[in-house]
Amino acid sequence: MSIKFTDSCSFPCSSSQYMLFLVWLMLSFLPAWAGVTESHPLKVIATNYPLAYFAERIGGNRVSVTLPAPADEDPAFWKPSATAVGDMQKADLILLNGADFEKWLPQVTLSKLKLADTSAGFKTAFIRIENAITHSHGPGGLHSHEGIAFTTWLDFDQAGQQAAAVALAMSRKRPEWTSVLTDNLKPLLDDLAALDRQMKELTATKPGLPLLGSHPVYQYLARRYGLNLQSVHWEPNEMPAPEEWEGLRKILATHPAKWMIWEAQPSDAIVAKLKELGVGSLVFDPCANRPESGDFLDVMGKNLENLKDAYR
């Protein structure tokens, strides 16, 4: 909008020009006023990638989501330093997986009002692991899978409940966003329900098919989709010791599995040796940490495709 100034004064002089100037002035300041009333992005910390993905899908650009575990570390065995705890204390919301995923939680001081346990709604459905073996791999060092199985999101129905808990926690922090968050949650729940349906359809083709798990992380997947799964404690990049191969042979004697499910692509040597035993290898990535490419749904879609090899 152009304003005509007279030669005699450097300000709009007639009343209509003056009104126009006022309107222009008000319109110029409108974005600034709007900015004042707009709340700052919700700072969310998610302890694993599925929760971070849910928060990003539900919150969109209203939230800034951080996954504190380094990219090369399993968030389930990551431990926060005092600095990381300090960063978490500054967040508006901390999304916890629960089910014993955050083993470091009793050792740190965090605001209880900022914590949201996303699996609290299905606490009674947790799977307890007894007599687990203590072993070591990666930067997390010596660890055991004893306690409660924590890969809750591999049951896509439970993942949906966790996504709903994420939306609820965010709307409690920002009640004014409730309708937007609810709108964003719906397509996510639809996507998870579709995955759940596809998994059920696939596993229903060969019920009770014997399968092997390279690591004890598929408990909820096995329970939800009726997988007949027995797990060992192997790492994709570490050749198992001879006694572990012997142990596998014993398992195979009573559990004639043709496929072993891996968290990541195993080394060629392991694949070849397994092949000698008549066991193929397929990857079902739990996706606990942010994938190098794609997102949670992409990874789970790929997992589903990989699993089709076993059910073919």
């Binding site: 300090g86 009793p106 050792q107 740190v108 001081t109």
Partner: peptide
């Protein structure tokens, strides 16, 4: 100093 962060502080 700082605020509480770890157990035992």
């Amino acid at each position: 100093g700082a605020m509480l962060a770890m157990l035992g502080e």
